[in-house]
Amino acid sequence: MNAPPQAVDYIQVTRDTYDTLGYPPYAWVHNEGPVPWAPMTKPLADCTVGLIASGGIYRAGQIAFHFKDDHSYRVIGTDTPAEDLRVTHFAYDLTDARQDVNVVFPLEPLHRLVEQGVIGGLAPEAYTFMGGIYSARRVREELAPTLRDRMVAQGVDVVLLVPV
């Protein structure tokens, strides 16, 4: 499976940037072996969907993410109005996300898909964190299992992951 020819290769872009700065290459996560797989057991229209996003989204009143290997997460009710949502991140242009958070945290599209019967429902809690976490180990051993357990406890059938 090859990338479309026009797709930006961000691994290479990062390698070039680090090389220019005289840093060793960043060790992107590279997983070998069989890809984990859970087959769909029911139609999408009957599925409860969970949402996890890494674009640095938080709710007004919550503590914002910080930029130094922050692997904490925030719980955001999926009934939260868009005007109460905020975005912070060091590695992408936040301009559009701060004008319309649905470009990185698609609550409104998902609610419309529920109304249209495309998906069965939306889990009550979404989880967010801020990507750019340097320690892949902390994500693998702490953050990811925690979010998995919370999603399972909510009874989701599928989870939509929205990285930035």
Binding site: D93, Q99, V103, P109, R112, V164
Partner: peptide
């Protein structure tokens, strides 16, 4: 980057992309 689920202020496009 920063537009994984669509363009800003484009609810129909966002819905179609997420679907």
């Amino acid at each position: 980057l920063g537009h994984t689920t669509g363009k800003p202020h484009d609810p129909d496009g966002q819905r179609a992309l997420v679907e």
